[in-house]
Each structure stands twice: as structure tokens, then as C-alpha cells.
Design a protein around this nucleic acid. Structure first.
Ligand SMILES: [Mn+2]
Ligand SMILES: [Mn+2]
Ligand SMILES: [Zn+2]
Ligand SMILES: [Zn+2]
Lengths: 130, 130
DNA sequence: AAGTTAATAGTAATAGTTACTGTTATGTTT
DNA sequence: AAACATAACAGTAACTATTACTATTAACTT
């Protein structure tokens, strides 16, 4: 009798990477995750970080965000929007904007709209003050 | 007496690149623009295309869009939003969503919000039919 | 016409990411 | 518990989009 083939095995590397991403609010890129994870697993390979980040995205355990010419990751998988400071490049969470207008918007189109992604940009409090 | 220094000189390359971007609805990437422009200026360099696309963005004559791991350009500088098909990767223009909710949203934050960018994603009519 | 320098073609370099390869380790089957 | 199958690994090479460099050309100024 054939069992379902194994889809994913446990690895200390993957669990550590997940914890690293989940433990921060900075919405890090792969290199940041690599450097942080190396503090725990000093000989981990950058390729391993990329491969596992992609897997974690695919399995829905983290989110993938597009920055300028770079990918960022988010351990917060709850629904929320983002604000990006164009001065310092930092990403901030903001509460999800009311989706109702989007739904009525979707009805007007013959596209099958699956997701609305709102990106806010401007200058953050920190950069305004200094 | 000193005149203002010249900021930008005319170049056939730049004007052709602008016309190429303005003449299409495909929201092309640099390579597409390069190939199209080569039909008119066969020996144009890819570096020239990149440099001029960046200048045209800076001077506000075209728009810059972020795709998955690539930049796209838009000759339509009027206010509008975009829908991206996750199946075929094509970008479509959609009318600008009502901005009023965004404005009230902005008032709730201590960020200085300068732009709202709405990205719609899903499956386009073409891909649904086939 | 001579001078200044923006813009160019062509090419090298960079940065982020993915692919490859031989080895290790996780989970399964006997 | 031993043998097995293969997911995952570390290390490294390759790839892709973009930018930087350099010697030459051409747009504008005087
Ligand atoms: Mn977030
Ligand atoms: Mn458009
Ligand atoms: Zn800032
Ligand atoms: Zn499509």
C-alpha cells in the first residue's frame, strides 16, 4: 500500500528562519534574515535561507512583499496594509483599510479580482522630526 | 553673465524611447522598450534605454511600475490604477478608485502620506476563457 | 568656428536571486 | 535496529535586471 509522498520534512534551519521572521516588525529582506539566522546557526547557507523563505511563503506561513528591487518578508500573516517611508525605506504596518469599496469595484470588471493590495508611501514620523 | 546650466539636451534616442512607451498599453519592461526602439534605431544601446527611461520617469513624462522582480513603464501619466493577471502577467489599466476613503485614512496617521497605490491582482478575462 | 559637456555605444561590474552538486539527515519500511 | 529513499543541506556557480565606467560623438553656447 502506498502512502502519500512526504511533502516537507522538519529542518532546524527552516524553523529557525521562521522564528527569525516572526520575531521582528522590520519586514526584513533575505540578507537580514540570513545575518540574524547565522547568529543561531553560524554555518547556514544563504541559498538555504532563500529556499526556505520561498517555501514558507508558498505554505502561507509568511508573506512576501515587494520593495524597490528587493523582496521583503512579513511574519504577520493577518490582514493588514503597509506604509513605506520613501526617506528611510522602513515599512510600517497599518490597519487594513475598509474593503467594501473594493468589492463594489470588483463587480464592475470582468477580471476575476483575487486580491487588493494597498501601498501607502510618504514620510514617517521619525524622518519628519529629524 | 552666467546663464542657467543646461539640464537636458535633445536626443533622438530619448524621444524615440518616449514615443515607444507612449504608443503601447502593455506597460513594458526595459527589454521590451529596447527591442522596439531597436527597430527604429538599430544600434541603440541597452544602457541608453535604461538611462533614458530613468530620466523620463524623473521628469514625470512616464510612470514607473514595480512588477515581480522587474520594473515596468507606463506612458499614461494620468491618474489610474492597475490590475495584474497572475496567470499571464499582463497589466491592465482600470479607472482610479475613489480616493476619498484614503484621505480620511491618512488623517488617522502620523505618517505624512504622499501617495496611495492600489494594486489589483487576479485572473484576466483572456485567461478565464481559455 | 571653437569650446563645453550631455549623451552615446559598448562593455564591465554589481546585486539579488536561483540552480546545481555532492553530502547529510529526516522520516519510512523492513 | 538496519537499510532505504529522498528532502534538505552547505557551498558554489550561474543567471538576470540594472547600474557604472570609458572613450567617442553630438547638442547647444559663446
Ligand atoms: Mn506587515
Ligand atoms: Mn497604466
Ligand atoms: Zn522614515
Ligand atoms: Zn491573464
Amino acid at each position: 500500500m502506498n502512502m502519500e509522498p512526504i511533502k516537507q520534512r522538519y529542518s532546524r534551519q527552516r524553523e529557525t528562519i521562521l522564528q527569525v521572521v516572526q520575531s521582528t516588525l522590520v519586514h526584513p529582506n533575505a540578507d537580514w534574515v540570513y545575518k540574524e539566522t547565522r547568529k543561531i546557526i553560524p554555518n547556514i547557507s544563504l541559498g538555504t535561507v532563500y529556499r526556505n523563505l520561498n517555501q514558507l511563503v508558498e505554505s502561507g506561513r509568511i508573506l512576501k512583499l515587494k520593495d524597490e528591487a528587493m523582496v521583503r518578508y512579513d511574519g504577520n500573516t493577518g490582514q493588514h496594509d503597509h506604509f513605506r517611508c520613501s526617506k528611510c525605506g522602513k515599512w510600517y504596518d497599518v490597519e487594513l483599510i475598509d474593503q467594501s469599496i473594493f468589492k463594489s469595484f470588483a463587480e464592475k470588471h470582468d477580471f476575476q479580482i483575487e486580491s487588493f493590495n494597498l501601498e501607502l508611501e510618504g514620510t514617517c514620523k521619525n524622518c519628519l522630526d529629524s
